[in-house]
Write a protein that binds this DNA or RNA. Sequence first.
RNA 1: GGGCGAUUAGCUCAGUUGGUUAGAGCGCUUGCUUGACAUGCAAGAGGUCACUGGUUCGAUCCCGGUAUCGCCCACCA
Length: 887
Amino acid sequence: MEKQYNPVSVEDKWYAIWTEKKLFHGDEFSKKPKYSIVIPPPNVTGILHMGHALNNTIQDILIRFKRMTGYEAMWMPGTDHAGIATQNVVEKKLAKENKTRHDLGREAFLKEVWKWKEQYHATITNQLKKLGSSCDWDRERFTMDEGLSKAVRKVFVQLYNEGLIYRGKYIINWCPRCQTALSDEEAEHKESNGKLYHFKYPFKNKEGFVIVATTRPETMLGDTAVAVNPSDERYKDLIGQMLVLPLVNREIPIIADDFVDKEFGTGAVKVTPAHDPNDFQMGLRHKMTPIVIMDETAHMTGPIPQQYIGTDRFACRKQIVADLEALGLVEKIEDHTHAVGQCYRCATVVEPYYSNQWFVKMKPLAEGALAAAVDGKITIYPERWKKTYIDWMENIRDWCISRQIWWGHRIPVWYCKECGKTIVAEETPSECPYCRSFDMTQDEDVLDTWFSSWLWPFSTLGWPQDKKALQKFYPTDVLVTAPEILFFWVARMIMAGLHFTDTLPFTDVILHGTVRDKTGRKMSKSLGNSIDPLEIISVSGADALRFSLIVITAQGADVFLSKDTFDIGRNFGNKLWNASRFLLENIKTKHVFTGLPSSASLSAFDKWILSRLNTTVAEVSKAIEAYRFNEAAHLLYDFTWRDFCDWYIEAKKADLYQTEDNARMENALNTCSWVLGNILKLLHPIMPFITEEIYSTLREKIDYSSLLDSEYIMTSSYPKANESLVNPVIEKEFSLLKDVITAIRTIRSENNIPPDKKGRAIIVPSSQENADLLCPHITEINMFCRLNETIIDLKAQGPKFSGQAVVMGNQVYLELAGLIDISVEKDRIKKEIAKTEKFVESTKARLSNPSFADKAPADVVAKEKEKLAGIIENLEKLKLSLKALEE
RNA sequence: GGGCGAUUAGCUCAGUUGGUUAGAGCGCUUGCUUGACAUGCAAGAGGUCACUGGUUCGAUCCCGGUAUCGCCCACCA
């Protein structure tokens, strides 16, 4: 084995083997219970970023863990066509050739996008593979493949027939750059510093003005009224009077509407039904015809003064203000912060736009999805998101699903030119069912991307056909994603699952944090602050990336990364590698693993590591089941590094080196390889590659049939805790041994004693019990502390000029002629005395509080008393030590 | 405007069903080319657990308030 672990070739090798042997495939005919996850499909033209790395690592841990614990595990992979995003990318490419999609035409443009899709699809899936994702690639789906498209059309038709899909002219969020409608969720509200403009609208028949306040002056060109609250004393008498809209010179009435807030602005609102959702509602209430004054690119148009026509909305805003200023109609301009909607794909400020769109009626769909969360049939981790989910469900609004782009599922609706009827059908109709005409045109729009994603958990499994896989793997078990798409995707999947399959598509939702840089900014390509996962993988390996991400990510918390974050995983992998290497290099001929030695021939150290191992096994499994992955990673890190490497292997070194006593060597090999084998299995879900690599080497050197139960670790069984090997007494006793060793090391270190100077330790245990514990470990104490002699004697008199310490009542002396600096020793003991005295004081104070004895539970009081006795004993011994040094 | 989260070592973060002397990684100091590993070993320094009231025998943890930061939602133009 190499001195340093080199992940690059190893990782690719194993992924190829796993794939070739089809070890990731979930068999729908299996008798085993299933465990299934559907991947949140990444954008087909996307590139793997740290968010994906975290997301997919979590899913892979669960899938691999469940696979090893006896489930038929299936992880459904796939990609999303990501309508607007993908179309934008391809349009950008065309723009470089000075072309637009309109130059190509719909058909040619779509061909171009498909080409792009084919090319980039491989990029994202290869990146997922690099990460080690054990997806069932045989089942991979794409949101626009034939089966899924069929599901989309079926669902559309069904909802239409149920009256849950309708078309109508409403105000929707419009992105003037993408030139399409957006859903409410796709318009992101960002705080921004704007202005509140106060304009004077003159009366028609008399002197004076009504002052209105607006943040969007350009919309005044489309005003159809000014509204006031009917109970507003200031304006009561003006209701019904006419104003003259400045610049346009159109007459508009003053109307009364409860919607108007008397407190805000001047209490008088300009009403622009075609360009504001509230005004639109008011327009309906007052039967006003909306006046459209902006086109789909947010340039001014319509029945407005010539000089504004064709100007951009923001340029027009400036111009309007200037023009009103010139007329003396600007009362004042105030600073005003408000939330402005932006397109979630291109950050362009969205415009409320009056247009004909398709909608899904959401209230009926939300009922069940709401109940599922309230009743606890769905659990969201961390739980605090449940409230957010419930709020959204309770206040749900209809979903605008039509998009004026080309890349996506074409709306399955045809309009008959002959009879004018609307035909909604899963397949292209050959003739109009109403008038037999052949002259029909399909709706030009496509569906919102999320209209296919919300079917993902069952459409990918073949719904509505192919029942076998669906029966086996649906519903899925857990959905792992980022909270950003809780509404976009998770909530809608739950609604779709309930509505179309009568089943919740999953029962658990894991929402992990957002990946940020060290200054807290979201990592993104546009900010240029992202760390490329592939770069980390190519240097330190996917295991290092995975382990590092997992170990630092608390459940649901955001993740802050810098490049050296990944050293944690790299170093840990290297440590594991070298521990394994050490063990394997001490195996001269193939070792036959004969099982763990019988309890009688286990040393205390053996019993200790087995106790720690089985405790760890139980805790790790519990942590993974509870989705506390960082806890699992920490437990494994500590057990592997601190317990196994720092103490156990160090203690076993002598046995592994020596050649005389074969029985001891055999014993050491058996226990070490047993523990290592278990570590590899425990770690495999988090670090799949390095564990598989070491496991394969292990199988070469060790005949392991009773321990290694499968050719590959990924198909091995996950360790189960053996309760009978958990031994709290041994663990407690070992902390004493470790403390004694550390005390001697501290004395050495603080006195600057060179490593090659060996000395003698004299230990005066505080009890026969402690003497009995420490005596069997004289060899180990000598080795760990580089001593040539250790004397353990209850009645020994500590030598005067020595390093001294008191550990849990046991006195420890280190004798090294001429090398101990007495002043150093005195200082340390004085410090120790001061610390102990403080401790004694606080404990005494607690015990002497009468209400403590009265009210605290008896065992707590007893514990405190015992503690006090112990530390007083310590204190006495420390004082004696100091006295001895001072004589 | 409503809701949620965070505030713990120099930095980044765990943790606590309320009970010994609060943890990790990195960084820092000191000593080590010790026959697995310098991506390492050993030892050490470093914290009034944001502030403030309350509940309690006991609060870093539970409750109220304040401050700062962050996130989500929202049709006051």
